[in-house]
């Protein structure tokens, strides 16, 4: 199995030596175990190969894969909740994330889900995910604000 970059996309040469273009990596457990179980999916949506652990790969393909994953990856991690204001349909959350400050809208309290332990994932109205890596590690003020919704 060999992974190549062709311009902006990936190509894969599988065990039989067949070359597949436009391969995309997909995390099977993006929330609970993002570093393991990465499937390589072909153009027809079928799985071509599956990498259980990125670290078992050679350096080069690993970097290619990690780079490709990072490209599709967008899960801001919330570091601080600045304010939560009431909006007509839900609440606007003003937050500081590892990717900068932003405002997103939440429809219901059910959009906040626990990933076990004190990890939370928040789905905003548009479907973007925000992660709170550790509720206990948030500052006191943020926790107070969060408590009202989760």
């Amino acid at each position: 199995m060999k992974i190549l970059t062709t311009g902006s996309s990936l190509a894969l040469i599988d065990a039989e030596g067949v070359r597949h273009e436009n391969v995309r990596p997909v995390r099977l457990f993006p929330l609970t175990d993002p570093q393991h179980w990465i499937a390589l999916v072909g153009e027809n949506g079928r799985e071509l190969a599956c990498v259980e652990d990125l670290n078992t790969l050679e350096d080069e393909p690993r970097q290619i894969l990690a780079g490709a994953l990072a490209q599709r990856e967008f899960v801001p991690v919330i570091n601080r909740i600045v304010n939560i204001t009431r909006a007509t349909d839900g609440h606007d959350w003003h937050v500081e994330t590892d990717r900068g400050s932003t405002v997103f809208r939440l429809e219901t309290d059910e959009s906040i889900q626990s990933l076990g332990g004190s990890r939370l994932v928040i789905f905003d109205k548009a479907g973007t995910r925000y992660l709170i890596a550790d509720v206990a590690a948030l500052d006191r003020d943020s926790r107070r604000k969060l408590e009202r919704y989760y």
């Binding site: 997909v26 995390r27 099977l28 457990f29 993006p30 929330l31 999916v41 949506g45 079928r46």
Partner: peptide
């Protein structure tokens, strides 16, 4: 497996 792959969060 194949349809799970297509979901936004996979097995999650």
């Amino acid at each position: 497996h194949d349809f799970i792959l297509k979901l936004a969060d996979g097995y999650d």
